[in-house]
Design a protein around this nucleic acid. Structure first.
Length: 559
RNA sequence: AGCGGGGUGGGGCAGCCUGGUAGCCCGCCGGGCUCAUAACCCGGAGGUCGGUGGUUCAAAUCCACCCCCCGCUACCA
């Protein structure tokens, strides 16, 4: 089976925080699972680097947008690599392949008659010489009198606004008074696809309920044409006749990155024809990991765009969306330095600790909360004590009582039953992964560890070793093989630790594919054994985080 | 305001779609073990499932209304 696995493209005007990691990590777990099942997987994402906020950030720093995004792209790529994200291609919207692809794509859609132009009036800053997105106009709220209301919404009274409603409107960048100016834009005729979209959503029952209900109700309410051009300078030039000086709206081009990134990957591999095999084979399945705010883009706009190109691209098979992540009960806020940014996270703890905890609290049904108390509790009590300690007690037992060599011989009935039980838990893990219930899947791994602890306790091999060697052998052999299976599943969630465990167990290469996870191994010579995890001290971590910020040790701390 | 999600023992969550007297992890209390990172295992106390009303032999689970929290509302990305 062929799979395209993707995560939403992070907008790289700043270093991403832990909330962004949720999607990236979820998609990685899923991609790793599919590969370990033996599927053919291409896993892509990239930096979303066009648009007004980046242009402004660049002005603020006195560099060109391209210089800024060059730097950020390589910084962010490296962070993802260090988090163990196994992208086949993490690219960027400035990639030549992407730019050309987007232009060709929209020209095709244009020729197919799904794009029309329309004149509108918009606020323009004569000083910065640019049209201002609603968000970039500030002024006094006509309802509550709040003086720092934004053009789209008043942050104090919450009312939705039009930028022209504001009293005394100002450009958010320079403070000058904007003027109304006529401008022409190109629109995608989304409503035309309403019926096809409805059918698509209704027929794809694997789409999650939240995505389905939200999408169908939007169709019910009536879709509107979506503008695909902007008056930005920093972006992909719109290819339409008469659209000189216009660029493609970032959202409308970034979603096409899912296609162009695969194309780029295979071109680089020297097998361009594989691209067609992935994207045009109706059997190929694609899955997108996103936050719930992106649902309409992935269940409505993106599929409609793919339909409108008439190129036979496969529509999204699944859209795995999550709720939001809060930090100590509040929203992440860069301005108030509330949250944890990815480079800080890696300076605090190894990637696997974050991978473990982030999947553990993945906001699958409701907003989740990051708290230091909870994080320390989960890492210490579950990852370290339950899982880490099982590994250590079994391996060090083999070291001290068996000279580091796993016994060979036969498993007795009780040992076989234990492994049978583990196999059941493992198939539960796979079921959960199939249904993209990553949280439960991870808990299955802990359940295996509990099973192992229970087994080891009740069998008391430290007693048998003196009186009943054969029974002790069976206990140890079964426990060792349980660890081996666990390493295979752990590899999906915590790749670094799983590989380390594999080495400590004296096994060659990487943890095996899932179908081989329970093949019985005997007689192995262990490698060096040391604790797989250690406990964390939340006060220490918080102190360390303050230090990192005070000293500006990482980029996000200096931004 | 509209739309979507949530409100379950001290904390964190599952169950609700496919109704049958509540499950998991942590914490707490008591016990066991000593191979292990003061780790592990066993037992126990503790909730009537936001509120009200309804459907039903039976509701956390279905329906209605209400209260509270969060997110989105399509030119922020």
């Amino acid at each position: 089976m062929r799979w395209i696995v993707a995560s939403a493209w992070p907008y790289i005007n700043a270093v991403p925080h832990l909330g962004t990691l949720i999607q990236v990590l979820s998609s990685d777990v899923y991609a790793r699972y599919r590969r370990k099942k033996g599927d053919s997987v291409i896993f892509v994402s990239g930096s979303d680097e066009h648009g007004t906020p980046i242009e402004i950030e660049a002005i603020k720093r006195g560099v060109s947008p391209r210089e800024l995004t060059d730097r950020m792209h390589s910084y962010v790529s490296d962070l993802f690599r260090r988090f163990g994200i196994s992208y086949d291609n993490y690219t960027r919207t400035e990639s030549q392949t992407h730019i050309r692809f987007v232009q060709d794509f929209y020209l095709k859609v244009y020729e197919n008659g799904h794009i029309f132009e329309k004149e509108t009036e918009q606020l323009y800053c004569p000083n910065d010489k640019m049209f201002l997105p609603d968000r970039f106009v500030v002024g006094t709220c006509p309802y509550c009198g709040y003086e720092r209301a934004h053009g789209d919404q008043c942050d104090r009274c919450g009312r939705l606004l039009n930028p022209t409603d504001l009293i005394n409107p100002r450009c958010a960048i320079c403070g000058a008074e904007p003027v109304l100016k006529r401008t022409k834009h190109w629109f995608f005729d989304l409503p035309k696809f309403s019926e096809d979209l409805r059918r698509y959503i209704e027929e794809n029952e694997q789409l999650p309920d939240n995505a389905r209900s939200m999408s169908l109700s939007m169709i019910e309410d009536g879709l509107k044409p979506r503008s695909i051009t902007r008056d930005n300078r920093w972006g992909i030039p719109a290819p339409f006749p008469g659209a000189e000086g216009k660029t493609i709206y970032v959202w409308m081009e970034a979603v096409l990155g899912y296609v162009s990134a695969v194309k780029e990957y295979f071109e680089r591999m020297g097998r361009p024809e594989e691209f067609e095999r992935f994207w045009r084979d109706p059997e190929t399945k694609s899955i997108y990991f996103i936050g719930k705010d992106n649902i309409p883009f992935h269940t409505l706009i993106f599929p409609a765009l793919l339909m409108s190109s008439e190129e036979g691209y496969v529509l999204p098979y699944n859209v795995a969306s999550t709720e939001f992540l809060l930090y100590e009960g509040e929203k992440f806020s860069k301005r108030e330095r509330r949250g944890i940014w990815l480079d800080e996270a890696l300076a605090l703890l190894p990637a696997d600790y974050w991978r473990f905890y982030m999947v553990y609290i993945r906001p699958e049904t409701k907003d989740a909360n990051f708290s230091w108390d909870d994080m320390a509790a989960k890492v210490n009590d579950e990852l370290n004590d339950t899982l880490g300690n099982l590994v250590h007690r079994v391996l060090s037992f083999i070291k001290s009582r068996y000279g580091g060599r796993v016994p060979s011989g036969k498993l007795d009935e009780e040992s076989r039953q234990m492994l049978e039980e583990a196999r059941k838990i493992a198939s539960g893990i796979e079921e959960d992964l199939e249904r993209v219930r990553l949280k439960d899947a991870l808990k299955g791994l802990l359940e295996m560890a509990r099973l192992g602890n229970r087994f080891f306790n009740s069998r008391e091999p430290w007693r048998d070793i003196k009186e009943n060697r054969a029974r002790a052998n069976s206990t140890v052999l079964a426990s060792y093989n349980l660890l081996r299976a666990m390493a295979c599943y752990m590899h999906i969630f915590m790749p670094f630790s799983a590989e380390k465990l594999w080495r400590m167990m004296g096994l060659p290469g990487e943890p095996s594919p899932l179908p081989e996870a329970f093949d019985l191994i005997t007689g192995t010579e262990l490698g060096d054994v040391e604790p797989l995890f250690h406990k964390v001290d939340k006060e220490e971590l918080k102190k360390r985080l303050r230090e990192i910020r005070e000293r500006g040790e990482v980029l996000s701390a200096r931004e």
